[in-house]
Structure formats: structure tokens, C-alpha cells
């Protein structure tokens, strides 16, 4: 997978423990126009991204995160539709502003199931404490 990626993205990906997951990338210029895109865009829930168009017209949620500063911005478990969970990594270099999209649907659904069980138990404990305190 990393062989198909632009050098900037491949270097960044090497720092992450995610190489087996589907990933896609966008590159934006300083005016936030998409100047390059590739990878598994469809699998990552972004099949129709076009070059030469402002990101705000295609993915307004990402436009709100720009401009990217010196530090990378990472947003894990971003649910963009009922069946797509992605991790977003935004970083900038001399070529442009990069948006790396990594599919996390499988692990995200497992995490959601675990969290659901934990929080349901917490709610029951809260109710028991409240009822006990009222006696």
C-alpha cells in the first residue's frame, strides 16, 4: 500500500502502526483547493473527491480544520456515515496540506460495543447509588 502513496504520506504512514488498513489521501494547496488525491477513497467513504475544487465544497467538515499548523492534527474514530468510521490525520509540508484518511470501521465497531457495555454498567451504578442515597 505505501508504495502507491506520495512520499510525504508514505513517510508519515511509516510512523503509524496501521499499514494493513485501507487508506486514502488528499493534498490541498494553501487556498484549500484539492490538488491531488488517491488511495482507497471509496472504502474510506469519499468516492467523489475532485481535483481543482475547494475542499469546503466537497468536505466542509475538513475545511473547518484548516489551516494545519506545524503540528499534525489527529482525529480518531470519526464517523462520517452509519457504516464508515475513519481516522483523520492532517499534516503540512513543503508540498501542501495533507489529509490522510485511514479506515477504522472494523476496530471502531468493536470499540463501540465495548464502550457501550461499560457505559451501560456505569449508568446502572449511578442509578443504584442515587436510589440508595434516597433511602
Amino acid at each position: 500500500m505505501t508504495n502507491d502513496l506520495p512520499l510525504s504520506v508514505a513517510r508519515y504512514v511509516k510512523t503509524l502502526p496501521v499499514c494493513s488498513r485501507a487508506m486514502a489521501y488528499l493534498c490541498l494547496d494553501n487556498d484549500n483547493v484539492v490538488i491531488n488525491r488517491g488511495g482507497a477513497l471509496e472504502k474510506c467513504g469519499m468516492p467523489s473527491i475532485e481535483k481543482g475544487v475547494l475542499i469546503s465544497e466537497q468536505l466542509p467538515a475538513i475545511a473547518q480544520l484548516l489551516p494545519i499548523g506545524e503540528k499534525a492534527v489527529v482525529l480518531v474514530n470519526t464517523q462520517i456515515s452509519t457504516d464508515t468510521i475513519i481516522d483523520l490525520h492532517l499534516f503540512a509540508d513543503t508540498i501542501g496540506q495533507w489529509v490522510l484518511i485511514i479506515d477504522n470501521t472494523e476496530a471502531g465497531l468493536i470499540l463501540q460495543s465495548e464502550q457501550q457495555e461499560r457505559l451501560c454498567n456505569d449508568i446502572i451504578k449511578e442509578k443504584n447509588t442515587k436510589n440508595g442515597g434516597a433511602r
Binding site: P60, A61, N77, T78, Q79, Q116
Partner: peptide, 29 residues
Amino acid sequence: YTTTIGVKIDKKVVNIGEQELSLLLWDVY
């Protein structure tokens, strides 16, 4: 009850008087 992991993103256009505003709703865990 369905828990949210990370964030869910939605969009809704709202009209306030004669002005139109697109709200990008970030439902954070």
C-alpha cells in the same frame, strides 16, 4: 442508548431571518 466513539459529523442548513447558515454538527463522544 447507543454510545458515540470519537465523533459523528452531520450537516443541517438553518434559516435565521433572511440568512442561511450551514451548521456542521460535530457530535463528540
